[in-house]
């Protein structure tokens, strides 16, 4: 009996090892993009970012593109003197990304536990939970301020959270997926991170990530560097060009008027 069990266990081990290594139910999640570097040239007006890869069978997918988490200062508008709307106080939203796009194959709140959402920073509610507002405000006001923050970002095309639009296709090796993000010109030059989460039974079971770089090149790069690093020189150049343009057009109009 003992020998029989030993034989069985020796036979089971390679079988298990084979199952782990075998493709199909144990496929690893991968992610790639067609556009890992977006160059901003003079005629740049936004782009698109295709994200694709493979994942396991029977999972939902959440695909996120975000930038570094920073602190953002904003002004809150309030009615002053019961009459006029104006900027009344300064608040700082801490630990928030400048850009946050999220796509999921199904509603995030239905496929993921809220603790998992928070842990992985998936969805607006998780963003709010992981962020802080300085100076501190009561929870009710914090909620209002954060939802206004999201609306402000959405209006500026820097945040979006959508359900659907992720094509998934079963194959011999797990399933493949593909989705396209519109990449608006409002997304500034920065290093971004694309992360794909495979979700099953309310939990993240696998993930993969890849980078996306948006950068200015050519004239755009030269002008930005000059403006930032040599402000005085840039200012003088801007004034000289404006004066030359103004006086130049003046002279053209003068000769034009005289000749015709």
């Amino acid at each position: 009996m003992k020998r029989f069990l030993k034989t069985i266990s020796w036979m089971t081990f390679p079988l298990l090892a084979f199952m782990v290594a075998a493709p199909g139910a144990w496929a690893q999640t991968t992610v790639a993009t067609d556009n890992d570097t977006i160059d901003i040239r003079i005629n740049y007006n936004g782009s698109t970012v295709d994200v694709s890869g493979n994942t396991e069978d029977d999972v939902d997918l959440v695909i996120r593109i975000d930038s570094k988490y920073i602190n953002e200062k904003m002004m809150v508008k309030a009615k002053v003197g019961g009459l006029l709307w104006m900027n009344s106080e300064k608040v700082e939203f801490q630990n928030v990304p400048n850009l946050y796009y999220l796509k999921s194959s199904a509603d995030v709140s239905k496929i993921l536990d809220s603790r998992e959402q928070e842990e992985y920073g998936i969805g607006y509610e998780a963003l709010a939970a992981n962020a802080a507002i300085e100076p501190p405000v009561d929870p009710g006001k914090a909620k209002t301020l954060f939802s206004e923050f999201i609306r402000y970002k959405e209006e500026g095309k820097l945040y979006s959270q959508t359900v659907g639009g992720v094509e998934m296709e079963a194959g011999g090796n797990g399933q493949s997926y593909r989705t396209t993000f519109d990449w608006p010109y409002q997304a500034p030059p920065d290093d971004y991170l694309i992360t794909v989460y495979a979700v099953r039974d309310g939990r993240v079971v696998d993930s993969a990530e890849t980078g996306l770089v948006v950068k200015e090149v050519g004239v755009e790069k030269a002008l930005t560097e000059l403006a930032q690093e040599k402000g005085g020189l840039y200012g003088i150049a801007a004034i000289i060009v404006a004066l030359a343009a103004g006086l130049g057009v003046g002279v053209i109009f003068k000769t034009g008027g005289g000749a015709h």
Partner: peptide, 16 residues
């Protein structure tokens, strides 16, 4: 009108 009508979003960028 800008001052008296309720703004669409109650936040604006600081540094304006």
């Amino acid at each position: 009108l800008d001052l008296t009508m309720t703004p669409d979003i109650l936040l604006t960028t600081a540094g304006g």
